[in-house]
Design a protein around this nucleic acid. Structure first.
Length: 468
DNA sequence: GTAGGGTTAG
């Protein structure tokens, strides 16, 4: 009998472990309901879920439904007599961070300390990340300093989080200095570290340094991955080095890189923006053929492509797919469609969608800009002016578009007033829009007014630069 | 727990 009891005990422990492995694997395939039913079955069979079982569920709830839903699991856990541990809090903090709730993550960290729990390296790494995302690099640095001084030994993620945070907060030079110092102290960077730095250098406009860093990665035995290529592609595109970017794309293909949704969307976006619709279509076909799971950004990218080709019907088919697939359209989706409708001359449709979008609570300045431009192009310039005047927040696009369209309608005096008020409001305007007004005034016999306007603009800009 | 500010307007 004693032997049986011993086996029972062993069986119980093993089974909880098996149950956890099973739930973890189901959660990883995002099937929370199935995981819950496996848990219920397990309990019916007499298995006792432990802290790992609940932590697994909490991590999954955080990822899929958000932190609030995860808290309901914490509640259930406590009811079952199991106390949350550091991993529970780390999961909740990670969940909050993933959903952009950085202040909420900080609150959780404080709560952790308040209830007497000891944060581990994961908690501190997350804390640093949150401070950086909140634009508080000094506080992040304090955490880093404390990790180094305290008994915790930092890991690669600690260093990468620090280097990335510095880059993202505009301290690319400090990031590189830290990187060099750490390397001297024995830190062996992986491709993630190099990607962080290459991206940081590209974004601060230092293309040659970025290229050199890429070479350094290769020489250090870190082959680039799909993320490296996407960074380089985007960086070159941002620098308007389109041909080099397209070359990188072909290089990726010839080396047999597997494209993911990020890479495909980047490339399709670039093709669309440079007017290479045929190539964009080939890419889309390949993306669909390769069975890439389409998320909302992918759908938005494809809908945009359809709109640019004037294939609105196809765009609406994709819209149906979004809703059938359980995804929710966002501001981008609506804006893309509103612009598509405007560009195909369906102003009435665009107006209806704009109203619907506003009713849904989206406040898209881009959509309004698009619509105003659409109105002008369809010949309703007075109505466009009315909307323009009623707009609370006008930006560079609003002014550039309106000024251009007024010039096209030969209403140079009105355009010159807008141009001047734009400059005086410290808003940038396209050089071509300014040129259109000045040329328009000259050619229509108002050369003196053009001269005066030019000097008024110069004075306004001079005053601004003095004040700055 | 770190890396692609993947998609929109002039």
């Amino acid at each position: 009998m004693r032997r049986m009891a011993k086996f029972d005990h062993l069986y119980g422990r093993l089974s909880t472990k098996l149950l956890n492995i099973c739930i973890d694997s189901i959660c990883k395939s995002q099937q929370i309901e199935k995981a819950e039913s496996v848990l219920i079955d397990g309990i019916r069979l007499g298995l006792l879920p432990d802290v790992v079982t609940y932590n697994t569920l909490i991590a999954a709830y955080c990822g899929i439904f958000g932190v609030d839903a995860a808290f309901s699991v914490v509640h259930r856990m406590k009811e079952a007599g199991i106390n949350p541990n550091t991993v529970t809090y780390n999961s909740l903090i990670a969940g909050a961070t993933r959903h952009g709730l950085f202040s909420g993550a900080l609150d959780l960290f404080e709560e952790m300390l308040r209830v007497g729990m000891h944060p581990d390296l994961w908690s501190y790494n997350s804390l640093m990340h949150c401070y950086f995302r909140l634009g508080e690099p000094e506080k992040a640095y304090d955490v880093f300093h404390n990790i180094m001084l305290g008994g915790l030994s930092p890991c690669r993620i600690t260093y990468n989080t620090m280097i990335n945070g510095l880059c993202k907060n505009g301290y690319a030079d400090n990031a590189i200095m830290l990187f060099r110092n750490l390397k001297r102290l024995g830190f062996v960077p992986g491709i993630t570290s190099y990607n962080i730095l290459i991206n940081g250098l590209f974004k601060s406009g230092r293309f040659n340094n970025a290229r050199r860093m890429l070479d350094e990665a290769l020489k250090s035995g870190c082959p680039p991955n799909v993320i490296t290529y996407t960074i380089v592609l985007k960086g070159l595109f941002r620098a308007r080095r389109f041909e080099e970017g397209i070359e990188i794309f072909w290089e990726m293909k010839s080396k047999g890189y597997t494209f993911d949704a990020f890479a495909y969307c980047t490339v399709i976006g670039i093709f669309v923006k440079t007017g290479r619709i045929r190539e964009a279509n080939d890419c889309m076909a390949e993306m669909l053929k390769n069975g890439i799971g389409l998320d909302l950004v992918s759908y938005n990218t494809l809908i945009n492509l359809c709109c640019k080709e004037g294939k609105l019907e196809l765009a609406y088919q994709l819209l149906d797919e979004i809703e059938k697939g359980g995804l929710k359209c966002d501001e981008f989706t609506h804006t893309i469609l509103i612009d598509g409708l405007c560009k195909t001359g369906n102003i009435e449709g665009a107006y209806q969608l704009l109203e619907h979008t506003t009713m849904l609570g989206f406040d898209s300045k881009v959509a309004l800009n698009s619509f105003i431009d659409g109105l002008c192009k369809a010949g309703h310039i007075d109505y466009a002016m009315m909307m323009f005047e009623s707009m609370e927040h006008k930006d560079s696009f609003t002014y550039s578009s309106m000024v251009h369209n007024l010039c096209k309608a030969r209403r140079y005096h009105c355009a010159s007033e807008l141009l001047l008020s734009c400059v005086r409001s410290h808003i940038k305007i396209l050089k071509s829009a300014q040129r259109a007004v000045l040329d328009g005034l000259c050619y229509s016999g108002f050369a003196r007014k053009a001269k005066k306007l030019e000097s008024k603009i110069r004075i306004a800009r001079l005053l601004q630069s003095n004040l700055a």
